[in-house]
Design a protein around this nucleic acid. Structure first.
Lengths: 207, 207, 207, 207
DNA sequence: AATGAATGAGGATTCATTCAT
DNA sequence: CATGAATGAATCCTCATTCAT
């Protein structure tokens, strides 16, 4: 394995000014990542767009990768916010209603920032410390698994882990391809159709 | 939009020696891509591993991207070979048998060279001329769609395009996650279970 | 000639607190110089180790060089303390006793802080204002010369300046090489032998 | 210990053009080292002065330190050439003649390029792989020791290692200080006086 | 006086690409 | 056709120093 650059933030930046700088840097990174892709994202450029000097950048982030990692974390947090909320809402619903909500939220999550999502999906491995991403995946798996476990009586006999794996993969893939392939032109009707169909498939599979 | 480098091979390399050089270069590119990742894949290194001078490399490929594109094409060709063959074999089979075969071949395809697959999946967009990849996706879609169309009578009423989209997404995702997440440790039993379950879901959905 | 940075301390630091800060800074500089070498000695690091902000550092020292110069001065002062004392003690002693004492004190001086001594020996020219170092050398020369002058009757006919130059060079070199080459492993027996031999050589030369 | 950059040349550069490039780089490094000192010696500057691109520099030297090491080696080779020759010439001479020649050659050696000598003396430790320098010192010690050993009968009873250490240190120090302190203004008369006196001291010591 | 966030010039190094041989 | 030396723009990152608070 190649050695990877450090990814942990350098300071915690609790003061207001620092906080603003850090935010500007992460925001700028996200923007450039979307506009130019990972390879063309240089630290000098990030600093420039953030309206900050390179020196400040390195005061808070030890490397380019650390910035990308911060962007990933921020994005994942947004997504996890949605997903967690949904899974709580869904806890007492029957499988069909729940799956529909999950499919819907998956698409919503991908729509938060589709281009960023794509770039990040591509760049995550290069970030080195992808621990956060694995944690992200694990949490989703755990939450979904817990739901399925609690609804076992409505379902046919399945290995819950296998079912979780297949459902999460499927829903994620449909959402990903829906949002990313069809880019910006995504009619509400189309979305509804895809939600319907995906729900049908997953629910059919579980029961 | 940034201008992208040329990606077409420079000459047709009809002579035997040329052919060998080209092959060596593509092979070397693939190997380094797997070993070191895209960022550390330099043309000088590729030439060295291929046992050729950089000058010769540029005789056959106008840019680094062209080499990566060639690797992608070669990999996609291998996959498409499998898929096309399978879809021919499957043409006269009922949906359940057919889906099972498709799921199986999807996993096989991902197992051809999982590491390369992963790297390529990450690098493709950066290649500029991603036309090839879209063509690849389009062909798969077309082939599967044709099969489903021909088997309409076994299926419930669905929009064939939507069904194709969902089925292809699902099968691809399960295969991808199965092979890449579970890395090298993938028991045959596990594979069979996942094939069974995925088949069950997709077939259940189509009928 | 390149312009050199200012090297004089910024204020006289008469207040007790100031004095403490200055000391802490000089001490920190010396420590980092020894630990990390000149190139890795940064003002931010010095301030940190000294438990002071960079801003404060620049309140007392106008440049990094000024700090290094302060360290050099402090070190030279320690050495000159020893040497002056010894030359006073030695004033009434015959040449053989005197030389032995001088050789001994030279080795002692190098042993005060050998690592710092080495780093400083390497860095001094870069300090710009190497005036202090020349002053240091001049004072030693002057003191030794005065002693030799006063003992002329015990000695053969020599140019006192030449003799001073050769004696000081020799004693300094033996002390330097003894301490720095043989690093930490320097038995007392070895030291005694070297003192004996060097004394023999120098005394033999003078008489 | 801090990690040190690589110091071994990258290629052997046997072709004529390469050889010229390498020479130009080493020569340029020496010149800049003398003119601006180690800290201001940047690779871009070296390349510029050498009339070569930075890229070429890095084709042959993996780091700035490697270049400095090459300069040191070249300089040491020049000196060792002189010293070896002298020790051969001196092999059959009595101690007094021999020492005189050695003192003379030591001063000559320091006069090859006094400024470079000074800078290198200061920078050697920072070069990391100082192996070559130690080898250099070891060889001098070995050669001188062998001579003294062979002339034992002319000498009083001494530990040959101790005598070698003291003689080499002394001669080196006098030469060093003579050439470097008195900079450019060094009359032949002065040199002769110093050679005479140093020889007298060392010979007196050995007999 | 002290703080420490911010600055940005400058330095080391890489690598796709060209071109003289 | 092949070679591989040469190029130099571009990138990451450091650190002495300043200055608003």
């Amino acid at each position: 394995m190649a050695r990877t650059p450090p990814t942990k933030p350098r300071k915690n930046a609790l003061q207001a000014r620092s906080r603003a700088t850090v935010d500007a840097l992460v925001e700028a990174t996200a923007r450039i990542l979307v506009r130019d892709g990972f390879e063309k994202t240089s630290t000098n450029r990030i600093a420039e767009i953030a309206g900050v000097s390179v020196g400040s950048l390195y005061q808070y982030f030890p490397s380019k990768e650390a910035l990308v990692a911060a962007v990933i974390d921020r994005h994942n947090d947004e997504i996890m916010g949605l997903v967690r909320t949904t899974l709580v809402e869904v806890a007492d619903l029957p499988v069909d209603k729940a799956v529909r909500k999950l499919v819907t939220v998956a698409i919503e999550a991908h729509r938060i920032n589709p281009k960023l999502h794509r770039v990040l999906a591509e760049q995550i491995p290069r970030t080195g410390q992808l621990a956060d991403v694995e944690a992200f995946n694990r949490e989703i798996h755990t939450l979904v698994r817990a739901y399925l476990e609690s609804r076992r009586k409505e379902m046919r006999k399945v290995d819950v882990d296998v079912a979780t794996f297949i459902c999460v993969s499927t829903i994620e893939a449909v959402a990903h391809n829906t949002v990313l392939d069809h880019a910006e032109v995504l009619s509400e009707k189309m979305v509804r159709t895809l939600v319907d169909e995906t729900t049908k498939m997953v629910v059919g599979y579980l029961r």
